[in-house]
Amino acid sequence: MTNQEESTVAQGVLEIDRISKRYGEVVALRDMTFEVRAGELFGFVGSNGAGKTTAMRIALGVLAADSGEVRWNGEPITFETRRRIGYMPEERGLYPKMKVLEQLVYLAELHGLSTNDAHRSAENWIARLGVRDRRNDEVQKLSLGNQQRVQLAAALVHEPDVLVLDEPFSGLDPVAVDVMSQVLREKASAGVPVVFSSHQLDLVERLCDRIGIVRSGAMVACGTVDELRAGGETRLVVEVPDAAEGWADGVPGVRVVEVQGPRTTLELTPEADDQAVLGAALATGPVREFSRQRPSLTELFRNVVTEEGVA
């Protein structure tokens, strides 16, 4: 939450502000709000149909919002500024019968590069993404993984100021995942706000500076992984070989989740005192392990989804 106050300084920030979109009776987005700051990798996660793709398509202007605003550098985004976005649509989009290099040069030119710059940039990116030896092949003749690399090159070839990528990692082999991660990291380091959606939550957790979890068209949690963890229940794993069953029952705000031999997993409410737990554990005899278990993004996400089921 430390950076939240700085959002008034909108330089290099992509802001999605209270975007709503309905398809007839179906509400796709409901006051969707988030921002991606300069130099930040923002992970966009949510169940299928939560509205991630719709939000991205609206940011790119290929879909019109019913209400709300998308801003770049503090100004409402225009057709001209949209040209500065690099976009990778969910359903990949390239001309199947066009050659790799020609296609990238064409897309770069359409984004305003001169023919020479377009060639230079296209050559650079196909080399960088490891598809240089396929440069004169038709896109449809490439494997899906290689098509994906070309698709990423298509998003990057005009050296965009913002990157919006819908599921860039789906269908990639581990090597390609590394290449893609590295490129995205680099772009962010260069000051480009990068937002991408993914279902690979471990990857998102590892890669992203901030994460937004979407549910039913609205942002339900947004922040760094630590911020997302804050306010939730804490889990402790304690290994006490000599303890009798129910050793921790007396500590207020503590619930036993699981007992596996000498290891006991406890869940503490925010008010509970972990030092009281340690005291109770020591009272039983030696303590071999006493650790705080940090919920992974997957668990955080599951909690949100469960809440959805309850709500």
């Binding site: 398509r57 202007g61 290929v62 949209r82 976005i85 976009y87 989009g93 390239l94 001309y95």
Partner: peptide, 16 residues
Amino acid sequence: EEKSSRVVEILLATLR
């Protein structure tokens, strides 16, 4: 072809 290959989404992000 542009519609079925979805390339139109990329094109219309930069073209009217």
